[in-house]
C-alpha cells in the first residue's frame, strides 16, 4: 500500500504533498487549540508507536504484508479523535519513509493522504461516528470499526490506483488495476477490521473512559469542526481533482490514456461490466497487434546509438564504482595513519 517514488511523477507527488501538508497543518492547529492538546501529545506518540510496533510484531495480514495502517488509523481516531490521529499516522508514515525506505519521500503526500487523511478526516467522522453516536457498546464498536476499516481501505486502494495511473509510469490498464487492487483490499479490510474491533472492544472493556472522552471531545462542543473539516476536504479534493485532471489531459500517458485504452473512450460513464469486458478483450488482443519488430516504422532509436547508450551506461557505473572505491580506500588509509 505504501507508494514508492519510482512510480510517481513529480506533478502528482507535488500536488498530493501539498494536499496532505495542508491537512497535517490544519490538524496540528486544531490539536494545539484543544485544551488537552499538549497533554495528549505523549498519548498520541505512544499510540502511533503502537501502530508501528503492531506491524513489527507481525500483526499483519499473513501473505499480503498489509501494514494495518488504515485499521490503525481508525483505531487511533477512536482513541484520540480525528485530528490528533492524523498527526500520529503522518508521523508513523514519515518514520517508515525515512528509516525503512517504506514509501518514498516524494510519495509521502500520497501515502499520508491515502492512509491518513482518508480514514481520519473522511471515514471516521462520516461513518464511524454516526454509528456509535447513540452511545458505545460492544456491538456498535464492532460494526463501526469493521465497516469503517473496509470502506477506508477501499478508498485508500482506489487512491493508489488513481495516483499511480495519473503518474503514467506503469502501463497497467485502469480496469485491470482496479480489479486487482479492490478485492485484495476487501479481504484485508475484513481481517483488519475484525482485529481492530477486537482491540477496541478490549480497550473499551478495560478503560471505557479512553474511548468515551475521545468521542465526546471534538465535535459535540460546537459542531463547527466537522463542517470545517468537510469544507477543507472539499477544497482539497477540488484542488487535487482539478490538478490531476490537468495533468491527465496534458500528459497522454496518464489516466485518460489508460481509460481510453481499456474502455475505448475517455469518458468516465462506462459501467463496471462493460469496462471489465473491454479490459478482457483488450488483454486478449493486445498480445498480437502491438507485437512488432523494430522495423515497424516506429521512432525507436537506431541500434548504433542504443548500443553506445548501454556501453556508456555500464562505463558510467564502473566509473562511479571506481570513484567510490578510491574514496573509501583513501579514507581507510587516513584512518590507519591516525591509528599508528
Amino acid at each position: 500500500m505504501h507508494m514508492a517514488d519510482a512510480l510517481l511523477s513529480p506533478a502528482v507527488g507535488g500536488v498530493m504533498c501539498a494536499a496532505s501538508a495542508a491537512a497535517v497543518v490544519y490538524s496540528a492547529a486544531k490539536t494545539k487549540k484543544d485544551e488537552l492538546g499538549e497533554k495528549k501529545l505523549p498519548l498520541m506518540a505512544v499510540t502511533g508507536a503502537f501502530v508501528f510496533a503492531a506491524q513489527m510484531i507481525n500483526f499483519t495480514i499473513p501473505g499480503t504484508g498489509s501494514s494495518g495502517h488504515i485499521g490503525g488509523g481508525i483505531l487511533l481516531c477512536a482513541m484520540l479523535g480525528a485530528h490528533p490521529a492524523l498527526l500520529s499516522l503522518a508521523a508513523v508514515l514519515i518514520i517508515q519513509c525515512l528509516f525503512f525506505a517504506d514509501g518514498g519521500l516524494l510519495a509521502l503526500g500520497c501515502n499520508i493522504f491515502n492512509m491518513g487523511v482518508i480514514p481520519c478526516l473522511l471515514v471516521y467522522p462520516l461513518i464511524f461516528k454516526p454509528i456509535v453516536k447513540k452511545g458505545l457498546n460492544y456491538r456498535r464498536i464492532t460494526i463501526a470499526t469493521i465497516v469503517s476499516v473496509v470502506i477506508g481501505l477501499q478508498l485508500g486502494a482506489f487512491g493508489v490506483v488513481l495516483e499511480t495511473l495519473a503518474s503514467g509510469i506503469t502501463e497497467l490498464p485502469f480496469g485491470t488495476f482496479v480489479a486487482l487492487m479492490q478485492p485484495i483490499h476487501l479481504a484485508i479490510g475484513l481481517v483488519e477490521g475484525v482485529v481492530m474491533s477486537a482491540i477496541l472492544c478490549f480497550v473499551y472493556k478495560m478503560r471505557p473512559e479512553i474511548l468515551e472522552s475521545s468521542l465526546a471531545s471534538a465535535p459535540i462542543k460546537s459542531g463547527v469542526s466537522v463542517k470545517k473539516t468537510v469544507i477543507v476536504l472539499a477544497a482539497a479534493t477540488l484542488i487535487v481533482g482539478g490538478a490531476l485532471s490537468l495533468i491527465a489531459s496534458s500528459n497522454p500517458d496518464g489516466l485518460e490514456w489508460a481509460m481510453e485504452k481499456t474502455a475505448g473512450t475517455a469518458e468516465l460513464e462506462a459501467s463496471g461490466g462493460v469496462f471489465d469486458r473491454a479490459a478482457a478483450i483488450q488483454g486478449s488482443t493486445a498480445f498480437l497487434p502491438d507485437y512488432s519488430f523494430s522495423n515497424s516504422g516506429e521512432e525507436s532509436s537506431p541500434v548504433g546509438t542504443t548500443v553506445s547508450g548501454i556501453v556508456g551506461g555500464v562505463m558510467t557505473f564502473a566509473l562511479a564504482g571506481i570513484a567510490g572505491f578510491l574514496i573509501s580506500l583513501s579514507k581507510k588509509k587516513k584512518r590507519d595513519k591516525k591509528a599508528q
Binding site: L41, V46, A91
Partner: peptide, 20 residues
C-alpha cells in the same frame, strides 16, 4: 513545521523501542 507535529514525531520515534 508545526511544533506540535515535530515533537510528536520525535517522541513517537523514541517510543517505538519502549513499546517493542
Amino acid at each position: 513545521l508545526p511544533d506540535i507535529f515535530v515533537t510528536l514525531f520525535e517522541m513517537l520515534y523514541r517510543y517505538i523501542a519502549v513499546l517493542l
